[in-house]
Amino acid sequence: MDVKKELLEKIDEAITHYPESKRSATLPLLHLFQEEHGYINDETVEWIADKLGLEPINVLELVTFYPGFRQSAPGKFHIRVCRTLSCAMAGSEELMEALCEKAGIDRSGVSHHHPIAVGKDGKFSIEFAECLASCGTGPVCLVNDDFYEEITPMNAGKLLKKYN
């Protein structure tokens, strides 16, 4: 697998944060690769395992455990809508429906193991997230790394228009 020089530098720097155990760098490395490729594939799992002197399963078991890692490509812009109590009370279900409608995303195939739905054109993908820790300004969502508060269903279209 070809790993770009800049990414490799970041990886080697991240490993220095854990002088006691390289294994601790697994999560940071997974984040770096996911930022680069959008998701984690088998090749990446094997590369990280090799780099850190682990078995591939040691890496894969993290990918499958943590909701923050994806095993298939999301849209160009990935939306996470908070589903938990205060946001739900403020209307996050309705926000999810409005976002899906405006972005042309069908969530009917979503399940516990496949929480992400991707639009046909691949521009947007969406999933529910558990508490994003901004309960006083619900409903809230993340679009890639951008955080939005008090997004009403009526503003769903406006939010999506920011992304092209």
């Binding site: 155990s21 294994r23 601790s24 697994t26 943590y66 923050g68 890692f69």
Partner: peptide, 24 residues
């Protein structure tokens, strides 16, 4: 050190396991 979206990492021993590069 960034987590990866798991509530259980708020539990201190789960957090430590996570920081060691394991399931929390």
């Amino acid at each position: 050190h960034r987590g990866a979206g798991a509530y259980i990492c708020g539990e201190e021993t789960g957090l430590i396991e996570s920081l060691e590069g394991k399931r929390p």
